[in-house]
Design a protein around this nucleic acid. Structure first.
Lengths: 350, 350
DNA sequence: TCGGGAGCGGAGAGCGCTCTCCCTTTGTGC
DNA sequence: GCACAAAGGGAGAGCGCTCTCCGCTCCCGA
């Protein structure tokens, strides 16, 4: 009664485990970190002692000596000069995308005990902060969701040669790892589906053409239609916003009233486009078939539900985490890219 | 040339700063942590040395001795027995709410250098993990977004007497800190606005009545209408989903076709309700005025844009962080609640 | 039988920081 | 002028862990 004056206060340390197991601190450490050959019997004895004591490694102490923090940052970078009231960030969090990314990343991180720190990088200073954070060992690396084509963060990370993985190909070529979806292939799925439905007059509403996703979705669709023998596809820029999608569809209907199939480069734009179609008395998909891209929440809440090209977001996010952990482990500064195949999700709009 | 073999490798430590400043390590530490009286002149000398060396405290070393990690977790808890394919999490990330919470929390955390770790607690095991994480010092405390009334996490946190702050009053009374919005007051704003518009036949579509938000929004609205002399307000349960809102509106129109004003307990339900109104040839707000609650993305993307009761989410989230940091600092186990005033955001629907 | 290597485990030195002592210096009241 | 207090600053002991040495044991081939 007098010996244990700290009932539930002090957490068990390596020393405690070592004492229970009857070995030295070093051996317990080796067992826990699976280093070198430890006698299998001892191995078991040590693990029993670990469970008996309820030992959990102190990550601060471990960090101190290894120089790793055991944490990576998920950076949501929206850095770009623009009006302070631009609700872009709101719009970004506006669909399951973010949640899917987090889920995918955590599925890889959790088993390895690595923490995920959330960081919002709103301007160039914040980007600089991110870079210095990883250089100063606040985190071991970063996974980046970069929302703008002119975001300086990817370049800064590449220059600093710091462990980082992007979601999506960077706007300009640079030595940095990323995961992406095979956009051309996705656009082809949409094109082939529209043609198979018997659409005779196909058009497309594109995203901003200064973004890789915008360009690729447009060119991919054109190429796929060309393969189907359709030499020309009218296209209208919707700028990846709902209002842009509405305007683009207005123009499209005005200039090509005979249109009976549209590939819209994002679900949000498609939602706007379908509202306009409805206003013009066109039914979807009977008068005009519509296919979106992303499979965001807009795809489900729109009427009718949107047929759309889906990216395997969770898998891509998980791969980001995997790439990053590998990169951190093998201190080599190699950049890698992994490209995933998209799916066509069949719903009512096409 | 031979002395500095590690050009940009080794980060400056307290020792380095001390050497530059010509004082001891202890003094630098005192200056940096603002502890005891240090000669103001020395104070300046030390800070100059800090900037000169580019020193940044090593948080692992600091954690090791203070026993604090300098990190808190943002737990998104959706634990509850239900179908695996329930897309609730997706729906949750489906609006700016999450982003606004993160922004609010980070605005407080950033200046104090505290990290925000994201944790998804999907089931009871994950909740137990959260509790043990904070007991084992993986994080210093948790900020919780609990999505279900039967979520076991709040109770577990309360029982463990661990630093934690909830967003929203817990479903059952328990000793745990939380921030919330004055729901009755918000409902009153909606009621008064509908009456002021001249609505004669007011009804409400409520959320799930097993959730505090559901009950309070309903009762608050009834009470406020009663104060306006309206003894009875027909109400229909929409279960906080878009489909539920649609069904509730269908029933409402069937049973009370004369309705000319509706308070809908969430924007998502209001979006569904407005679609139904439109299908029935009713215009909003001329035939029927609609007021939502939350000010989520649905409020802006719906047609017409939704007049809605807005919670000061950023402020509330910031307060959560503040409460948590205070609680962590003063190891006392005191629970607090802070209640915020809602606003009525005037848009086109009412 | 003996040397040598391989395998296994222990001892101990820190990682960078905070914080408790303790010494020095300066101020203050009689 | 002296005793005492108070305040500023230094020395040094760890926090809990990893990892490099190093020594012991065992096994194998010569």
């Amino acid at each position: 009664m007098t010996s244990d004056q700290t009932p539930a206060q002090r957490l068990p340390t390596l020393e405690d485990v070592a004492q229970v197991a009857g070995v030295s601190r070093a051996t317990v450490s080796r067992v826990i970190n699976n280093i070198r050959n430890v006698d299998p019997q001892l191995h078991k004895v040590v693990w029993d002692a670990v469970t008996a004591t309820g030992y959990v490694p102190n990550r601060a102490a471990r960090s101190l000596v290894t120089g790793r923090t055991g944490a990576i940052a998920l950076v949501v970078s929206e850095a770009e000069n623009r009006a302070a009231d631009d609700p872009f960030l709101g719009r970004f969090f506006s669909d399951p995308f973010f949640g899917r990314v987090v889920g995918g990343v955590l599925s890889v991180l959790r088993p390895s005990g690595v923490h995920l720190a959330l960081v919002l990088a709103g301007d160039e200073d914040a980007c600089a902060k991110v870079v210095s954070d990883v250089r100063q060992g606040q985190v071991d690396g970063v996974v980046v969701l970069s929302l703008h084509p002119h975001d300086p963060l990817p370049r800064m990370l590449a220059d600093a040669a710091v462990p980082a993985v992007l979601y999506g190909r960077p706007a300009a070529p640079m030595p940095i790892s990323y995961v992406d979806v095979a956009t051309y292939q996705g656009a082809k799925l949409a094109a082939d589906h529209l043609v198979a439905r018997g659409c005779q007059h196909v058009a497309t509403i594109s995203g901003s053409v200064d973004m890789p996703a915008g360009v690729d979705r447009l060119n991919g669709f054109r190429e796929a239609m060309a393969k189907q023998g359709v030499a020309y596809v009218p296209s209208y820029d919707g700028g990846f916003t709902q209002e842009g999608g509405e305007r683009a569809m207005e123009r499209l209907l005005a200039e090509h009233p005979e249109v009976d199939g549209v590939f819209v480069a994002s679900d949000v734009m498609a939602q706007g486009a379908m509202m306009v179609l409805r206003d013009h008395g066109k039914t979807v998909p009977d008068d005009v078939a519509v296919i979106g891209f992303d499979d965001s929440s807009a795809a489900l809440s729109s009427r009718p539900p949107l047929t759309t090209v889906r990216q395997p977001v969770e898998d891509m996010a998980a791969e980001m985490a995997r790439l990053l952990l590998t990169r951190i482990d093998s201190r080599a500064n190699r950049t890698t890219s992994v490209i995933f195949d998209p799916d066509l999700v069949h719903r009512a709009s096409a």
